[in-house]
Measured scan of single mutants.
Amino acid sequence: TRVETATETAWISLVTALHLVLGLSAVLGLLLLRWQFPAHYRRLRHALW
């Protein structure tokens, strides 16, 4: 049971790290898009909202 718990903890930390990385890359990508294509971003936002 001790090994299982350790594996579970490792998986949880791995998944958390993955989610953090994905979230950060998504935010960075959005910022980059907004910085590179302001007109396109505004049009996209206008279409979405």
Rank of each mutant, 00 (worst) to 15 (best):
T7K: 12
V21C: 10
H40F: 10
W35S: 15
A17S: 11
L32S: 07
R2A: 11
A10D: 13
T5V: 06
W49F: 06
L30K: 00
L14F: 01
T5I: 06
R45M: 05
V27A: 11
R2G: 10
F37C: 08
L33H: 03
Q36G: 15
T5Y: 04
A26G: 10
L22S: 09
L48R: 04
L30Q: 01
L28T: 05
A17W: 08
H19S: 00
W11P: 04
W49S: 04
I12E: 00
L48A: 07
V15M: 06
A17D: 02
V27M: 08
V21S: 11
A26H: 00
H19V: 00
L31A: 14
H40W: 08
L30I: 12
A6C: 15
V21N: 00
A17F: 09
R42P: 03
L22R: 01
L18N: 01
L28K: 04
A26S: 14
H40Q: 14
W11F: 12
T7W: 12
E4Y: 11
T9L: 13
W11C: 05
L24E: 01
V15A: 09
R2H: 10
T16H: 03
T5C: 03
H46E: 11
L20D: 00
V3L: 11
H40I: 07
E4M: 15
L31D: 00
V27L: 13
A10F: 02
R45D: 03
W11D: 01
L20M: 13
L18C: 07
V27H: 02
R42V: 08
A6V: 09
T7R: 12
F37S: 03
G29C: 13
R42I: 09
F37V: 07
L20V: 13
L44P: 03
L28Q: 02
L14E: 01
W11E: 03
W35H: 15
T7E: 09
L20A: 14
L28A: 03
H19F: 04
T5A: 00
V27S: 08
L31P: 04
T7N: 11
H40Y: 09
I12P: 01
F37D: 06
T9K: 10
V15T: 12
L30E: 00
A47M: 06
S13T: 11
R34C: 07
R43V: 09
L24S: 07
V21K: 01
F37R: 05
L28Y: 05
A47T: 09
R45T: 09
W11S: 02
Q36I: 14
L18S: 01
R34Y: 05
L22W: 06
L14M: 11
V27D: 03
A26K: 04
T9M: 11
F37W: 07
A47R: 12
V21W: 00
S13G: 10
V15I: 12
L18F: 13
H46A: 07
S13W: 11
V3C: 05
V27F: 12
P38V: 08
L20T: 10
A6L: 09
